[in-house]
Design a protein around this nucleic acid. Structure first.
Lengths: 247, 247
DNA sequence: ATGGGACCATGACCACGATCAAGAAGGAAA
DNA sequence: TTTCCTTCTTGATCGTGGTCATGGTCCCAT
């Protein structure tokens, strides 16, 4: 009875079940059997959609859950002692937020919605408990963390070896690829983040981002209008992104 | 009988058992009960010590094990398409190498010994199998990966916001702290890596590393002679490391 | 509609650190 | 030892991208 009530409430709010989620092929439960997925379903918690600018959680609050992005997008920002904010990541649907909080048992940054965003909350202790009996889930969890490690290394490479143009080109090709994998157009999309966010993320001043976007435009690589982006020459952009160093 | 033979051979070669390893309080088996530690012991494999310059594994070879550093130190280097090598990490005793290979099932970089180095090989499938029945081990594994994520984010911050001086200062304070945690002097140590490695890691030209080391010297922050380092004013160095941006 | 604030574009200038160049010092092998 | 090669230091120059400054544009609330 309690089950049906909960079931009812969920389906009224919005579909929460992984089995019918269009992201399931990219998300954590990937590779789970139907039975396992039901169990997994049972532990995830829906949260009310976040409005633009709202925080999913704040830096230094105790770690308790990881979150899978269902729709929308978020940014992670860390503030350190004397310094300015540093934007360390953007999260798109199916990506897992909060994994870097496990070690110290608090979140190392504030995660903020860039637009209206829904997430699935996955209490970590229950996730771990399930993982005990589900090798597939365990593997997927390792893989998520491992992937994030690899992505971080890519980012370090970008930050330490690429010119401003190459950084912007990487940013666009990476976004393009992530949209493609999620079934959206890899050529035409809307940026949910401000120029300042892009600059902060890429280690560039806002002005530089603007200037280079302008240059890309005149070079016929992309057409940018506000936050609408049309990628006109993806191969050229990819080439640029994969170059490194001065010239 | 086989047991005793193996046991004998091990203790002749060198002590491999976690229980008597001086690093056990920092390493993976941290927090394991005695019984569990025995099981853990049983799956790790000793490798012949690596000589300076030898590779533990090479980029793109299939992932099979993670490695715990027992003594010595290593660097991880990734080569990408057209680009130059990028040094993404230094590993010290008790640290875990290879975790970023899980996702794509091959190692994303070549790991090379900076000096004579011994490691414990931990076959990942067996580690995962043990983790199934040992929540503590599982937790420790998550924590290791999570910590690496956090460290990576710190590195990104360094690369995108810090000046050359601040980077060098961070590098020294970080090394100092890592030595301290391992029971070595935090003030006096020997660098196992070349200036070029430091520069590559920090996103600086070798020449810049040299120059700034010189400057640190005249400022009385450190005394450097070749690869011997004496930290003279750790507080000042720490202050510098924690600053950010231009002035 | 209109005003105000955030966001974005563009110009002028300058500094940090890369690059080029040369030489010194360290270290391994004969 | 001497040789040779790698590693390190120091100097001179230059370019990318940061900073400062200004004006334009978008968007939202009233």
């Amino acid at each position: 009875m309690a089950d049906t009530l909960i079931g009812r409430r969920r389906s009224i709010l919005q579909e929460t079940r992984c089995q019918t989620c269009s992201l399931s092929s990219l998300c954590l439960p990937l590779a789970l059997e139907v039975d396992d997925m039901d169990q997994f379903d049972a532990i995830i918690r829906r949260r009310a959609p976040l409005k633009k600018g709202e925080a999913l959680f704040r830096q230094d609050t105790p770690f308790s859950s990881v979150f899978a992005v269902r729709s929308g997008s978020l940014k992670q920002v860390t503030t350190e002692g004397s310094g300015e904010d540093q934007l360390t990541n953007f999260y798109l649907p199916s990506e897992l937020v909060g994994l870097d909080g496990i070690d110290e048992q608090h979140y190392p940054g504030t995660v903020v919605a860039l637009e209206t965003t829904t997430v699935c909350e996955i209490p970590f202790d229950r996730l771990d408990h399930l993982a005990e009996s589900m090798p597939e889930l365990r593997g997927q969890l390792y893989r998520s963390m491992s992937k994030e490690l690899r992505d971080d290394r890519r980012m370090m490479r970008l930050l330490s070896r690429k010119t401003a143009d190459q950084r912007l080109a990487s940013f666009f090709t990476s976004l393009s690829e992530r949209f493609r994998r999620r079934g959206y157009s890899p050529y035409s999309f809307r940026l949910s983040m401000a120029r300042a966010d892009i600059g902060n993320y890429l280690g560039l001043a806002v002005e530089t981002v603007s200037r280079i976007l302008g240059r890309f435009q005149t070079q016929g690589l992309v057409a940018v209008s506000g936050r609408e982006v049309n990628i006109l020459d993806l191969p050229a952009l990819t080439r640029l992104a994969e170059e490194e160093g001065a010239h």
